[in-house]
């Protein structure tokens, strides 16, 4: 593999219902390269195709044009190789499985032996600080706890890439800020590459090394913003002048994108 990028999108297009009256250009001419260990956010108003881009990377949908490589492979191969873990907006835990069994689910499908499954699930639940809840069912946990279980489940098979589609969108502000800190800690601990879809400017700036600002109709990248804030970040990061500058910059870009 000559290309070291985790994700390499070249002139990528996605049209829904192509060739019909209902054809929608969801993404047009996307060029993006994500390096190993990066934390990249996709931000933009609804309809800008940020989730579509994530789903293309995950091979949950197919592109209509351009080229996309994940870990130097076509996305379908990367999916078959289980190169990524995915976290959705809803925790999407299986309600009939206990928390520990939910975390073990990907390992079961990938054929890990029972002892290894238990050991790893326990380790992940320790990491998201839910080790006492292994025997509970999802409905007994709060929304924030469920989302931590979803993160544990996405990382349990140690994928090199973590794809997150507005994972904290349904949480209240307090919980969300705590989850952001927790996610950064996990990211640094696991060295995983993260692609994070959000519609919160504050969240994107706090978490990311780079922010991909997208504009709608048709969905395209309008600018990529580098965030000049050192890791590890904590509550004080949100009081750093550079934090406010970046938030303002991203907000203006989004406003411009909307007025086009």
């Amino acid at each position: 593999m000559s290309d070291p990028s985790v994700i390499q999108a070249t002139n990528l297009d996605k049209i829904y219902n192509p060739g019909t009256d209902e054809a929608v250009v969801a993404l047009q001419d996307i060029n993006l390269s994500v390096q190993p260990g990066e934390f990249v956010s996709l931000i933009g108003p609804s309809g800008c195709g940020k989730s579509t881009l994530l789903r293309l990377i995950a091979n949950l949908i197919e592109p209509t044009g351009g080229a996309l490589e994940v870990n130097g492979k076509v996305p379908s191969q990367a999916r078959l190789d289980r190169d990524y873990g995915m976290v959705f907006q809803a925790a999407t835990l299986y309600k009939w499985r206990t928390i520990a069994k939910n975390v073990q689910l990907p390992l079961e499908i990938m054929g890990y032996p029972r002892g290894e499954r238990r050991r790893r699930a326990q380790q992940m639940l320790d990491m998201v600080e839910l080790n006492e809840f292994g025997g509970h069912y999802p409905r007994q946990l709060s929304g924030g706890m469920q989302q931590r279980v979803a993160i544990a489940r996405a990382l349990v098979f140690e994928p090199s890439l973590l794809l997150m589609d507005e994972p904290f969108g349904a949480l209240d502000e307090f919980t969300r800020e705590r989850m952001n800190l927790e996610l950064l800690r996990i990211w640094q601990q696991t060295q995983t590459t993260v692609v994070f879809v959000t519609h919160s400017i504050a969240e994107a700036v706090f978490l990311s090394g780079r922010i991909v600002v997208m504009s709608p109709r048709p969905g395209r990248i309008s600018e990529i913003v580098e965030v000049d804030l050192p890791y590890p970040r904590d509550f004080e990061t949100r009081e750093d002048p550079r934090y406010f500058e970046t938030v303002t910059a991203v907000r203006e870009l989004l406003r411009d994108a909307h007025e086009i």
Binding site: A58, L60, R79, L80, R82, Y84, G85, M86, F88, T92, Y94, L105, P106, I109, M110
Partner: peptide, 9 residues
């Protein structure tokens, strides 16, 4: 829930 399964191939 189905997409989750698909993501695990």
């Amino acid at each position: 829930e189905l997409e989750l399964m698909r993501s695990y191939a």
